[in-house]
C-alpha cells in the first residue's frame, strides 16, 4: 500500500436549501493512495460532485477532516485553499473551460501566472506540456481553431503545468465523441503510468473501466469500492477501433 495522498475522516457536507438541510455527504472515510487511478461513479445527487469539490479544495466540509498530502485542508482559509489548488491539483472539466481569447500556450500558462512563475520560465514550461499531450504544433492556435479532443488536451496540459500531485477530472469525456474520449483516457492512463494520481468523476461505466479502482456513491454514501488489478487499456481499444475501421 502506497502512502495516502488523500485521507478523509468522517468527512461530511450539509447544504441548507430553502429552510431544510440536505446532507450531500454523510460521514465518509476514504483513502486514496499516491499513484492510484480512481473513478468515482454515481447518479446525480449521489454526492460525487460534493466529494470532488472537497477533494479539489474548492469547498470546505461541514464536519470531519480532509488530509491532502499529509496536510489538513478542511479548515484552511479561501486564500490558502487557492494556494493548495494552484500548487498540488490539476483540474480537467467536461467543457474544457479554456479562455477563448488566449492561445493554447497562454491558456496552459495561466496556473503559472497565479503561481508567480517568471514569464520566460512559464512559456518554456507551457510549450513542454503541450508537447507532452501531443499538441506541440498548436501552441499559437486559439481554442476555437482546435477540435474538442485537442481542446481537452490543452486543458490537460494546463492541469499538468504546475506538476500537481493530483489530476482531478470531472466527466472529462462527456463532451467528446467515443473515439476522442478513448484517446483522452489513453492519455490519462499514460500519465498515471508515469506516476500521477488521477481521480475521475463520471457516470459513464465505460470510462470507469479504464480505472484501477472504482468507488460507487449513492445518497452521500459510498456503496462500493472495488479494485481492478487489470483495467482495460485505452491504447488497445484504440488499436482495435483503428483495425475495425480499416476492414
Amino acid at each position: 500500500m502506497t502512502a495516502p495522498l488523500i485521507q478523509t475522516e468522517s468527512l461530511s457536507k450539509d447544504y441548507s436549501v430553502g429552510g431544510g438541510v440536505v446532507h450531500a455527504l454523510t460521514p465518509l472515510d476514504l483513502t486514496i493512495g499516491r499513484g492510484e487511478f480512481t473513478a468515482v461513479m454515481g447518479p446525480s445527487g449521489s454526492g460525487k460532485s460534493t466529494f470532488m469539490n472537497l477533494v479539489g479544495c474548492l469547498d470546505s466540509p461541514t464536519a470531519g477532516r480532509l488530509l491532502f498530502d499529509g496536510e489538513d485542508v478542511s479548515r484552511l482559509s479561501t486564500d490558502a485553499l487557492a494556494d493548495v489548488r494552484n500548487r498540488k491539483i490539476g483540474f480537467v472539466f467536461q467543457s474544457f473551460n479554456l479562455l477563448a481569447r488566449l492561445t493554447a500556450e497562454e491558456n496552459v500558462e495561466l496556473p503559472l501566472m497565479y503561481g508567480r512563475v517568471p514569464r520566460g520560465e512559464r512559456r518554456a514550461k507551457a510549450v513542454k506540456m503541450l508537447g507532452l499531450v501531443g499538441l506541440a504544433e498548436r501552441g499559437h492556435h486559439r481554442p476555437t481553431q482546435l477540435s474538442g479532443g485537442q481542446q481537452q488536451r490543452v486543458a490537460i496540459a494546463r492541469a499538468l503545468v504546475n506538476d500537481p500531485l493530483l489530476l482531478l477530472a470531472d466527466e472529462p469525456t462527456g463532451a467528446l465523441d467515443t473515439r476522442t474520449g478513448v484517446e483522452i483516457m489513453a492519455l490519462f492512463q499514460r500519465l498515471n503510468d508515469e506516476g500521477i494520481t488521477i481521480l475521475i468523476v463520471t457516470h459513464d461505466p465505460e470510462v470507469a473501466e479504464y480505472a484501477g479502482r472504482v468507488v460507487r456513491m449513492r445518497d452521500g454514501h459510498v456503496i462500493s469500492d472495488e479494485r481492478n488489478a487489470s483495467p482495460v487499456r485505452a491504447a488497445d481499444v484504440l488499436g482495435r477501433m483503428t483495425a475495425q475501421a480499416a476492414e
Binding site: 487557492a82 483540474f91 472539466f93 473551460n97 495561466l110 497565479y114
Partner: peptide
Amino acid sequence: TREIGLRMAIGARGRD
C-alpha cells in the same frame, strides 16, 4: 462568471 470560476480553480485568489 465561468472564467472567474476557472481562474479560481487553478489558483487565483480573491485579490487576483
